[in-house]
Amino acid sequence: MSKISVKVDGVTYEDEVEPRTLLVHYLREQLGKTGTVVGCDTSNCGACTVHLDGRSVKSCNVLAVQADGHEVTTIEGLAGADGALTPVQEAFRDCHALQCGYCTPGMIMQATDLLAENPDPTEEDVRLGMEGNLCRCTGYHNIVKAVLQAAGARAGEHA
């Protein structure tokens, strides 16, 4: 077992983990952060996307021990303490960018990262920036629309 200290959604946890424990399993099983889900085993689907030190990563492709001393944000830590949704979350609902919702946490985390990097993306930027997240329900049409709408909303916020 290895001892790790990880800050997740603003709270610091000190835990013992097996070195082989994947970050996503640590989040789900040890911390109960079940908002982050597993959709594949080859790091293709992006459903498990979280932020590690502010950048999006696939948490199935990171060991919990690698996160030792780092900061993780999951879908559960995105909304404000008062429950206020982020512009990306709002846009996903408003644009009907989810159906079954299984890919949604990963999509929202990746979109959030994308907009942090590029606040004013074109449709092509969005399509390329979201290529690591698979969705089987929406055909992506409304996901792309939501990310663009969120970009607009963010632009409005900062104006």
Binding site: S43, G46, T49, L52, R55, S56, V57, K58, N61, V62, Q110, D113, L114, G129, E131, G132, N133
Partner: peptide, 9 residues
């Protein structure tokens, strides 16, 4: 290379 998440790591 792959996708943004992979490129971050």
């Amino acid at each position: 290379v792959a996708d943004p998440q992979i490129r971050h790591r």
